[in-house]
Nucleic acid binder design. Structure first.
Length: 474
RNA sequence: CGGGAUGUGGCUCAGCUUGGUAGAGCGCUGUGUUCGGAACGCAGAGGUCGAAGGUUCGAAUCCUUUCAUCCCGACCA
């Protein structure tokens, strides 16, 4: 209601002004508008290819889950019960058993797995689904935490815990490659602490992105579920030596939160900066003219540019709205984060050139020869991706603080600089709680690339088996 | 669920203290001049002031109740 500040880092305001989404009449829910949904479709397309390349096929499981299913795995129900939306009435009558609107689909999928998996020959078994889920979160934020959100959840079953672990790590790697090469983001990857683990999992791995405002976003997770769910849902197979054995499961997912990661990971004071590979419009063409004669010439040129860039396979749009001035269009398309802008005016027609502007650096490239346009635009898109990725990587590295030796220092550095603190922690829940309560931060992950050097916990002074990344997250 | 704030044309808000029957900017419609970084003129359309009740000759304004939203915490992809 009262978004009257000009803080460019205000996500809700930006998402709405850039026309990605709007609030819905239901608290915490959002309407994803065409421009925002187009980003999601591009994310889906790229990720879906990668998931399928791993041998996982798509399927679809129902939205409604019997309440009793959630209760079968003790940790799972404990973790999810408070945030479930429950259907108690249907067809004008009270239901014998309430139905849960899925907050995630482990239970229904594993119920089906128990019917489908019988032999060691069935393993590994896997399925992925693109779906919506509902979690009644207390506080919501557009794209980062909405009551209903869209995601992809993959589920696999394996003979051994090691196989499951390998799969969970493989899918984490898929996400990492995707985030680097498609979203131009450089997350840390690693393992979660026990308290941050998914409800019902043995191990949870995650990707943690540093945003422009110094806060951290968990952008995706991959879980090794062990045999917990298999026991709860009785998923057993006959091994080669004819023994009934529980399977080891994994689940992994990323959501529309990735759009939040893109917005907050790349934005600047002018608005959105979309990574070229998921930009619904990669190139916007702006015609500039005064007279009718100029208009004819300029529009003819713009049409030819549009056709040429389309033929190159680029996502291009010609902004031929004559009601607003070119200057107004510059601002609008900058707000919307279009990576490359092509400006064509009478001067260009005369000189057989165009003017290019790249969004990431807001840099003008004047007098590009018309004949070199396509090549130059493609170069710019590649450069822009690299620029955004490197900026995010450097931002993360510069804001990873390694020399912190006390809880006070931890709090101070997070207050002043944000980012990640890489600290020794003794592994106890007691010290972890102090980090939460005093430094107002959480243990994000134990970074895979951090050498496992012994040290002393910065709080207790007890022995630490390696550093963990701590920070303030959304 | 605690703490804070706000509900007035599509959007951002003024008006409320000190009641007299609603205003600005932006946007929108039409039109003319503009157009290389957010153009301007003219003419228009659009509001039971979140809801209910009360006080009053009279309520956007005062009182009571209620609903909703946003921001800060606890919870989470």
């Amino acid at each position: 209601m009262n978004n009257n500040n000009n803080n460019s880092l205000d996500l809700s305001d930006l998402a709405i002004r850039a026309d990605l989404a709007d609030y819905s009449p239901v608290r915490g829910c959002m309407v994803i508008k065409p421009y925002g949904y187009a980003i999601w479709e591009l994310i889906q397309k790229e990720l879906d290819q990668r998931i399928k390349a791993c041998g996982h096929q798509n399927a679809y499981f129902p939205l409604l889950i019997p309440e009793s299913f959630l209760k079968k795995e003790a940790d799972h129900i404990e973790g999810f019960a408070p945030e479930c939306a429950v259907v108690t009435h249907a067809g004008g009558e009270k239901l014998d058993e309430p139905l849960i609107i899925r907050p995630t689909s482990e239970t229904i999928i594993y119920h089906m797995f128990s019917k489908w998996i019988h032999s060691w020959r069935d393993l590994p078994y896997s399925v992925n689904q693109w779906a919506n889920v509902v979690r009644w979160e207390m506080r919501t934020r557009l794209f980062l935490r909405t009551t209903e959100f869209l995601w992809q959840e993959g589920h696999t079953a394996h003979a051994t815990l090691e196989d499951a672990d390998q799969e969970a790590l493989r899918m984490l790697d898929v996400y990492l490659e995707f985030m680097r090469n498609i979203l131009a983001l450089a997350p840390y990857t690693g393992q979660k602490s026990d308290s941050e683990r998914f409800a019902g999992a043995e191990k949870t791995y995650s990707l943690e992105v540093l945003l422009r405002d110094g806060k951290i976003l968990q952008a995706g997770t991959s879980h090794n579920l062990g045999v917990g769910f298999a026991k709860a849902f009785n998923i057993q197979y006959q091994s080669k030596n004819n023994e009934l054995t529980f399977v080891n499961l994994t689940s992994w997912g990323v959501s529309t939160r990735l759009i939040g990661a893109i917005i907050l990971g790349h934005q600047d004071e002018k608005g959105l900066i979309l990574p070229p590979k998921v930009a619904p419009i990669q190139v916007i063409i702006i015609p500039i003219f005064k007279t009718e004669d100029e208009k004819n010439k300029v529009m003819l040129e713009c049409d030819s540019i549009l056709a040429e860039l389309k033929a190159e396979g680029l996502r291009v749009k010609l902004d031929d709205n004559e009601q607003i001035s070119p200057g107004a269009k510059f601002h609008e398309w900058e707000l919307k984060g279009v990576p490359v802008r092509v400006q064509v005016g009478p001067r260009d027609i005369e000189q057989k050139t165009v003017e290019l502007v790249r969004r990431d650096k807001c840099e003008k490239i004047k007098s590009v020869l018309r004949t070199e346009l396509s090549a130059k635009v493609k170069d710019l898109l590649t450069e822009s991706h690299n620029f955004l990725y490197n900026r995010n990587l450097e931002w993360r590295n510069q804001n990873t603080h390694n020399n912190i030796n006390s809880l006070e220092e931890l709090t101070e550095v997070l207050d002043k600089k944000g980012g990640f603190a890489n600290i020794h922690w003794d592994g106890s829940a007691e010290q972890e709680n102090k980090i939460k309560e005093i430094a107002k931060a959480t243990i994000r992950v134990r970074d895979f690339n951090e050498p496992k050097n012994e040290g002393k916990c910065i709080i207790s002074g007890n022995k630490s088996m390696g550093k963990v990344l701590v920070g303030r997250a959304y």
